[in-house]
Design a protein around this nucleic acid. Structure first.
Length: 591
DNA sequence: GATTTCACGTA
DNA sequence: CGTACGTGAAATCC
């Protein structure tokens, strides 16, 4: 390999680009197969991905430009594997999700949305491949332009089939820079919180990079402890298919021994329902919370519920899961996304977001390291206070326990106040907590008004934006099944969804701002975020950095909240709190 | 073979 | 006290 060539940026290989708004603000970078191109400070470079990316990594080390990319995954993975923490990014896909709602965000959709072309006619690469390639381009179309005839981005623009030469890579980079500039303008022009929406775009883009880092680093696992916990719930590791069947039968027999005169496939809900009926337990469904009250009716119920728990470990979090997702370096790895298609929470695969509590002791810091575990306290009501600007509710956030001042103000016990606040944020407004809800309305009218307005927007199918600017689509066309459902039920469901989405979405925005601040401050400590769980961060640091990292988590929250909220009127400051502790295992109690 | 339903884990 | 997501097994659709 020509090592000297790959790292150095040679001026004679560059081509001067005309200065445009996009090239000043952004450094577009595209990677397609084994080729790549970027436009940086008016100079362009294209060629073998190995060489171009080595130069790009060098630029990142020196200058921290804002890399504009079709997606972080497509263009910035190499930075992550090289151990270089990308400081600034503009991820077209993430910004599109923010701007337009939903999750689909391929380059064709991003472009069509920004130039005002119908989304439903965006050329799709899948089944129509044969057609696309068969259809000859009009003679006047530029064969090196990723925007094809009809004004849409070619379906194959980001494939090695089309992007097989430097001038096409450069055209793609120019397109990416142009789209980033258009997104910037669109966010800036939003009627509510334009500058904040741009800040959210920066944050979401960085979150996409963090997702690559999370997938790369993985979550440290004590493999022997994991094997032990799985063994305790699901039995020993089966030596063969036959052995596995025997273990399953033994597990089943713990339930079926209670019904010697009848049998059933426990994995078949219909058969389980019939089995239970034969034992005098008549239920509509066999769900856990339906069966729970019948534990004392017949011993088979308790045995079945215990069986379900063990079966869950055996099937979903058993030896296969361990073998598939925990690497030879004892790290649990799964893919992460910076936002879901709804309110904007992060998602994770490989069970990282729904690991049963009983397996958490298996998540353990590596030798010489500790976890610093932090979770945001009462995040959703505090976020409600912040985004609504309710001065009275903001005053309540100054307490460590937000529900205490609320209870005092309403003249009720704390549990009553808590249920009322949660019911106002998520529940049916017409429930049994009616009187307390009316008191809540009087005490915190601004906050309650925000919730009511969101509910009304849901009913009216009027799209909303979160505090940070994310579009919450509420005008989705109904599926056939949904059209058959009662109208009032659907309306109420959409109202609840809307009310939840503005709170959950804003909380996700604050959480990401916090996480990214932590990520930045951890660099000198040689620490990493290894898990993000909606309101909880798990940070892995060398043991001697534990105290500093604890400070970092608190300080980052204050910084992130201040930046996220922007200037606040005196007397309306909202306080956010984090519970932070140093542990060796994830399940250990908070200090 | 792909999609839907049920069930349940997490926040 | 509601929403969301990911997962696996069985049922169902085509």
């Amino acid at each position: 390999m020509a090592a000297s060539r790959s790292a150095a940026v040679r001026l004679d290989e560059r081509v001067r680009e005309p200065p445009t708004a996009s090239s000043r603000a952004f450094t577009p970078l595209v990677v397609v197969g084994d080729r790549a191109a970027y436009l940086h400070a008016g100079l362009s470079r294209a060629g073998l991905a190995r060489d171009v990316l080595a130069a790009a990594v060098e630029i990142e080390r020196l200058e921290h430009p804002r890399w504009a990319v079709p997606s972080a995954e497509s263009a910035l993975t190499v930075f992550v594997t090289a151990g270089v923490r990308v400081a600034r990014a503009w991820d077209l896909a993430e910004v599109h999700r923010l701007l337009a709602g939903g999750w689909a965000a391929d380059l064709g959709r991003v472009h069509a949305h920004l130039v005002g072309l119908p989304i439903d006619r965006v050329p799709q690469p899948r089944a129509s491949d044969l057609f696309d390639f068969a259809a000859p381009s009009p003679p006047d179309a530029d064969p090196n332009d990723p925007v094809g005839a009809g004004g849409y981005v070619r379906a194959d623009a980001l494939t090695p089939d089309w992007a097989d030469r430097d001038e096409r890579l450069l055209a793609l980079a120019r397109l990416v820079g142009d789209l980033a500039a258009r997104q910037y303008a669109a966010l800036s022009a939003l009627p509510v919180g334009g500058p904040r929406a741009v800040a959210t775009a920066h944050s979401e883009s960085a979150a996409a990079v963090l997702c690559l880092e999370l997938a790369h680093h993985g979550l440290p696992v004590d493999r022997r402890r994991a094997e032990h916990l799985i063994g305790a719930a699901a039995g020993p590791r089966p030596a063969s298919e036959l052995d596995a069947a025997r273990i399953r039968r033994e597990r089943d027999s713990l339930v079926l021994r209670h019904t010697p005169d009848r049998s059933a496939d426990l994995r078949n809900p219909a058969q389980v329902k019939a089995l239970l009926a034969g034992c005098g337990v008549e239920v509509e469904t066999t769900r856990k919370w339906v069966l729970e009250p019948y534990r004392t009716t017949h011993p088979v119920v308790g045995a079945l519920l215990d069986w379900r728990k063990a079966e869950r470990i055996a099937t979903t979090y058993g030896y296969r899961w361990l073998d598939e997702h925990v690497g030879p370096d004892d790290r649990l790895r799964g893919a992460w996304t910076a936002c879901d298609g709804g309110a904007g929470r992060m998602t994770a695969q490989a069970g990282l977001h729904n690991l049963p509590a009983e397996l958490r002791p298996a998540v353990a810091a590596a030798a010489g390291h500790v976890f610093v575990r932090a979770d945001l306290g009462q995040i959703e009501p505090r976020v409600l206070a912040a985004v609504s600007g309710d001065p009275a509710f903001a005053a309540a956030t100054r307490s460590d326990d937000l529900y205490a001042p609320v209870a005092a103000k309403l003249g009720v016990e704390r549990p009553v106040a808590k249920v009322a606040v949660l019911a106002a944020m998520y529940g049916q407004r017409s429930g049994s907590a009616g009187e307390t809800l009316r008191d809540l309305q009087r005490a915190y009218p601004v906050a309650m008004r925000l919730l009511d307005d969101a509910y009304a927007a849901g009913l009216a199918r009027r799209p909303l934006r979160t505090f940070g600017g994310r579009l919450i689509p509420l005008d989705r066309t109904l599926t056939a099944d949904e059209q058959a459902a009662p109208r009032e039920w659907l309306d109420a469901a959409r109202g609840r969804f809307a009310r939840n989405a503005i709170i959950q979405g804003a909380a996700a925005e604050l959480f990401k701002a916090w996480a990214l601040t932590v990520r930045h401050l951890l660099i000198p400590l040689d620490g990493q975020i290894v898990l993000c769980l909606h309101d909880e961060l798990l940070v892995h640091v060398p043991a001697n950095a534990a105290n500093t990292a604890t400070d970092v988590l608190h300080r980052a929250l204050a910084d992130a909240a201040r930046r996220w909220l922007g200037p606040t009127q005196p007397g309306r400051e909202v306080r956010f709190v984090a519970d932070v502790c140093v542990v060796n295992r994830w399940d250990e109690a908070k200090g």
